[in-house]
């Protein structure tokens, strides 16, 4: 049975719940992966809705008229962030914490850039919200920016743990999970990008 994450049986009040500070056995890893997968599948449903939304609401084709370059730059920044977190996972395999810090540090900046590039157009009012394109543009762009924001928090949390826990880290599930999440958001935004700027 999986008892690793379970509390200290002698002293239940002394539960220790640090992430990354205990060794994971196979079963634990299954549970974490399974949970994350479920969560991500569940979180993809808004995407289905957003894809439907534009044509369902207007009932006809609506030509995109946003600046495709900004969105593309955002996508590129997100992909770079993803490559960096992947590199961090590889560093984690080698227990190279310095490298993880550097890579996630850069990943943070790229994800931040992506969020600004994506979020910018919501605020700068170049697109009229009172239009069939505008209404879906706001919703999609905002959703995209929000998802990117969550990756930024995840990357920062990972970085913080690696920096502060250093020697006592026993597993790098946090790194793999963050990486999976960053790539998931990359795909999410890529799909939204296609929808917003090209379809």
């Amino acid at each position: 049975m999986s008892t690793n994450i379970e509390p200290n049986f002698e002293n239940p009040t002394e539960r220790v719940l640090y992430p990354m500070q205990y060794e994971l056995d196979k079963e634990e890893q299954m549970r974490l992966r399974g949970g994350l997968t479920l969560w991500l599948i569940s979180m993809s449903i808004p995407m289905v809705l957003l894809y439907e939304l534009r044509y369902v609401i207007s009932g006809k084709y609506v030509a995109p008229n946003a600046n495709w370059l900004l969105g593309l730059l955002g996508l590129v920044a997100m992909v770079i962030a993803g490559l960096l977190t992947s590199a961090a996972v590889r560093s984690a395999k080698r227990h190279n914490q310095r490298a993880i810090l550097i890579q996630t540090g850069w990943a943070f900046w790229f994800a931040l850039a992506a969020m600004v590039l994506v979020g910018w157009q919501v605020c700068d009012r170049t697109i009229n919200p009172i239009s069939h394109f505008g209404e879906m543009f706001f919703v999609c762009q905002g959703t995209g920016a929000f998802y990117i924001l969550t990756t930024i928090i995840a990357v920062l949390a990972l970085r913080g743990r690696v920096k502060r826990l250093a020697g006592s880290i026993k597993n790098y599930w946090g790194a793999s999970a963050t990486n999976a999440f960053v790539w998931y958001v990359c795909v999410f935004w890529a799909l939204l990008y296609l929808l917003i700027y090209w379809l």
């Binding site: 569940s42 979180m43 993809s44 449903i45 808004p46 289905v48 809705l49 957003l50 939304l53 369902v56 609401i57 207007s58 009932g59 919200p129 009172i130 239009s131 069939h132 505008g134 209404e135 706001f138 919703v139 905002g142 959703t143």
Partner: peptide, 26 residues
């Protein structure tokens, strides 16, 4: 998640405001 997204849209529809669910929309 489906209804949460819907509520986000309705919320934006109200506070931005957007015209999504009015007669010009659907």
């Amino acid at each position: 998640p489906e209804i949460m997204m819907t509520f986000v849209m309705a919320l934006l529809d109200k506070i931005v405001p957007l015209p999504m669910f009015q007669s010009t929309g659907s």
